[in-house]
C-alpha cells in the first residue's frame, strides 16, 4: 500500500518537474511542426483564409517548379563541396593540434576563433574579401599575376566562394569534436605502433582514424545537416535571390523566398517537409552505414 502510494507520489512529482519543459516543447516545437504540416496542404498568403489544396503543393514542387531541381542540385553540390573539405581539413588540423608542442594552446585558440563569429558578420567580411575589383583576395592574386576572378558575380565562382566560406566556418567545430576524440585514443596503441616501426602518417591512418570513427560519423552527419539548412551565409553573401542567376540558389534560400518574399506559406511548408524527409533519409542511411562499419570492426 505505502510503496504504491510512494510510487504514485513520485510519478506526480516527476510529471510536475517536466511539465514546464514539456510545455515549452509543445508550444515551440510540436505546434509549429504540426502547423507547418497542416499548412503544407493549404494555399495561404497570410492575408486571405487558407485554402485546402490537398497534395497540390507537393505536385507543383515535384513536377511544375523548374527551380526545385536547380535548388536540389545546388544544395547537393554545396553539401559535397563543404563536407569533403571540412572533414579533410579538420582531420589534418586536429591531427596537427593533437601533439605535445610548446605553445599548442595558442594554436588551438586561434583555430577555434571562427566558432565565435556570427554567420552574418563572417559573410559580410568575406564579401569584402571576395570583391571582384578591390577585394583582398583578388588584390593578393594580382601580386602573383593572376587576373581578377569574379568570386561573387559569376554563378560558378559564387558557389565556390560559398563553399569556401562555409568550410572556413565549419572547420573549427569539426576540429573540436575530432580533437576531443583523438585525445581519448589510448596512448599505449601509439607506443606499440612505434615499437613496430610505424611512421606517424601510418599511425594516423591505422590507429587514430579508425578509433575516432564515431566522432567522424557525427561530424559528417552534422555537416550534411548544416549544409542542407544553409541560409544565413548565402543570404548575406549573394543576396536573397540565391544569385547570380541561380548560382547559389539552395533549398534554404528557396524556402525563405517562397515563404517571406512570395508569401506562399503552404508551398514553403511543403518544401520544408520535403527537405526534412531528405535529411531524415540521409541521416538514417549514414547512421546505418556507420553502425555496420563498427560491427565489422
Amino acid at each position: 500500500m505505502t510503496t504504491s502510494r510512494l510510487v504514485k507520489q513520485r510519478a506526480r512529482a516527476g510529471r510536475a518537474f517536466i511539465s514546464p519543459n514539456l510545455a515549452a516543447v509543445a508550444v515551440f516545437m510540436l505546434f509549429p511542426l504540426g502547423f507547418s504540416l497542416y499548412m503544407s496542404f493549404q494555399k495561404w498568403d497570410l492575408f486571405t483564409p487558407p485554402k485546402f489544396v490537398g497534395l497540390g503543393n507537393f505536385r507543383q514542387l515535384f513536377t511544375a517548379d523548374p527551380l526545385f531541381p536547380i535548388a536540389l542540385g545546388n544544395t547537393a553540390i554545396f553539401t559535397v563541396g563543404t563536407l569533403v573539405p571540412t572533414v579533410v581539413i579538420s582531420l589534418a588540423v586536429a591531427g596537427a593540434l593533437n601533439r605535445k608542442v610548446r605553445g599548442i594552446g595558442v594554436f588551438r585558440t586561434v583555430v577555434f576563433l571562427p566558432l565565435a563569429v556570427s554567420a552574418v558578420v563572417m559573410a559580410v567580411v568575406w564579401q569584402f574579401v571576395f570583391n571582384t575589383n578591390n577585394g583582398l583576395l583578388n588584390t593578393m592574386l594580382g601580386w602573383v599575376g593572376i587576373g581578377p576572378i569574379p568570386w561573387l558575380t559569376d554563378p560558378k565562382w559564387a558557389m565556390v566562394s560559398l563553399c569556401m566560406v562555409s568550410v572556413w566556418k565549419s572547420v573549427p567545430f569539426a576540429t573540436v569534436i575530432l580533437l576531443a576524440a583523438m585525445q581519448g585514443v589510448p596512448h599505449i596503441l601509439y607506443d606499440a605502433a612505434k615499437i613496430d616501426g610505424a611512421s606517424e602518417v601510418r599511425q594516423f591512418f591505422s590507429i587514430t582514424v579508425p578509433l575516432i570513427r564515431g566522432a567522424l560519423a557525427f561530424v559528417v552527419v552534422m555537416s550534411i545537416i548544416n549544409a542542407f539548412q544553409a541560409f544565413d551565409q548565402v543570404y548575406v553573401l549573394t543576396g536573397g535571390h540565391g544569385g547570380p542567376e541561380t548560382g547559389t540558389y539552395v533549398l534554404g534560400i528557396m524556402l525563405f523566398q517562397n515563404a517571406f518574399a512570395f508569401l506562399d506559406f503552404g508551398y514553403a511548408s511543403a518544401l520544408a517537409w520535403v527537405m526534412f524527409a531528405i535529411l531524415l533519409g540521409l541521416t538514417v542511411l549514414q547512421l546505418r552505414l556507420a553502425r555496420r562499419n563498427i560491427a565489422e570492426y
Binding site: P155, P244, E245
Partner: peptide
Amino acid sequence: AAWERIDALMDRGFGPVLR
C-alpha cells in the same frame, strides 16, 4: 502583388546580360 516573383525573375534574367 506578384512583384517579388517578378523581381526575382528580373534579377536572374539581368545577370547574364549585365555580365
